[in-house]
Computed example of a mutant assay.
Amino acid sequence: MSVTERSNAAAPTAFGAASAASTLSEAVVVHRNPLLRAGLVAALSPFFRARDGAESQPAAASVPERPPLIVADHEGALAMLAASATQPRRGGMAPAHWLVIGPVSHGGRVRDAMSAGVLGYVHAACSVEELRDAARAVAAGRRYLCRTAAGLIAEGWLGDDLTPREHDVLRMLCTGLDNKSIGQRLGVAPGTVKTHVKTLLQKLGARSRTQAATEALRRGLIEGSAMDDPFPLPPDCGAWAAPPVKSRGARANPAP
């Protein structure tokens, strides 16, 4: 075969590769971990026009044919989604499809991300094959949850069965307050609180208040930031206030 024939034979192959590359969806990796960001770009490159969002800028101001896939960490995705919600959309372009890669600690984080607009959530320790499956699904506009995230979401469905009052009691129970203290803050009798706590133990499958608090945190029913006392004592609760603790052997002062 002559040089010209070899050149002509190779031309369709090169054109075909360029044409295939042009049809790939765009994937922008904006994960805040530099090492993980580089690995994600490399893993997605065979199937997407993947680029490092921290080191490159969009190629042009034109609107892409399909919404881009954006791969980010949990905190970064929520922050950018919140910021983009206040900005006008270019040329009627559909919103980007978001995929979060990171640790999956509890269902509450996953639910928050999905509520904010994230379509996919995958554990950072996933395989390359699962990463690509998730990226393809999210790029096509479908939801994708890894097994860990899906399991935690399923466990967290219990939160929908709790009444608003039970949520309040659960939050204060997690701060270590006893029934009387919870009743002071809610303005109800300690017996009513005891009934709520009993119901919570049954719904959480817990045998003690400590186990109930641990289970609530694990399922994402209570955020760690809610461990501060969310209900301070009302100013007019003097009648509920506990008497001062007297040291052993001390005599109480007579009332004036």
Results as ranks from 00 to 15, higher is better:
Met1Thr: 11
Val3His: 04
Thr4Ile: 15
Ala10Glu: 09
Ala11Pro: 09
Phe15Gly: 05
Ala17Glu: 11
Ser19Glu: 15
Ser19Asn: 14
Ala20Ser: 08
Ala20Gln: 07
Ala21Ser: 11
Ser25Leu: 10
Glu26Pro: 02
Glu26Gln: 03
Ala27Lys: 02
Val30Leu: 03
Asn33Tyr: 07
Pro46His: 00
Asp52Lys: 01
Ser56Gln: 12
Arg66Trp: 14
Pro67Ala: 08
Pro67Ile: 08
Pro68Phe: 01
Leu69Glu: 03
Ala77Tyr: 05
Ala77Glu: 04
Ala79Ser: 02
Met80Pro: 09
Ser84Arg: 09
Ala85His: 07
Thr86Leu: 11
Arg90Ser: 08
Gly92Tyr: 03
Pro95Ala: 00
Trp98Ile: 15
Leu99Ser: 01
Leu99His: 01
Val104Leu: 02
His106Arg: 06
Gly108Val: 08
Val110Arg: 02
Arg111His: 14
Met114Leu: 12
Ser115His: 10
Gly120Asn: 03
Ala124Ser: 08
Ala125Asp: 12
Ala125Asn: 10
Glu130Pro: 06
Arg132Leu: 11
Ala135Asp: 04
Arg136Gln: 13
Ala140Asn: 14
Gly141Asn: 09
Arg142Gly: 10
Leu145Pro: 05
Cys146Met: 05
Thr148Gly: 06
Ala149Trp: 01
Gly151Gln: 08
Ile153Lys: 10
Ala154Ser: 12
Glu155Val: 13
Trp157Thr: 15
Trp157Tyr: 07
Trp157Lys: 11
Asp160Pro: 13
Asp160Ile: 15
Asp161Gln: 11
Leu162Cys: 04
Leu162Gln: 04
Pro164Met: 05
Arg165Ala: 13
Asp168Tyr: 07
Leu173Asn: 03
Thr175Gln: 10
Gly176Asp: 03
Asp178Arg: 07
Ser181Met: 13
Ile182Lys: 01
Arg185Asp: 04
Leu186Gln: 13
Leu186Thr: 10
Gly187Val: 12
Val188Ala: 11
Pro190Ala: 07
Gly191Gln: 07
Thr192Ser: 01
Val193Gly: 05
Val193Met: 08
His196Gln: 14
His196Gly: 05
His196Cys: 14
Lys198Arg: 15
Ala206Gln: 09
Ser208Val: 12
Arg209Ala: 13
Ala213Cys: 14
Glu215Cys: 12
Leu217Ile: 10
Gly220Lys: 02
Leu221Trp: 02
Glu223Met: 06
Glu223Ala: 06
Gly224Pro: 12
Ser225Ile: 13
Met227Ile: 15
Asp229Arg: 01
Pro230Cys: 03
Pro235Thr: 02
Ala239Phe: 13
Ala239Gly: 15
Ala241His: 13
Pro244Asp: 00
Val245Ile: 08
Arg248Trp: 04
Arg248Asn: 05
Asn253Phe: 04
Pro256Val: 05
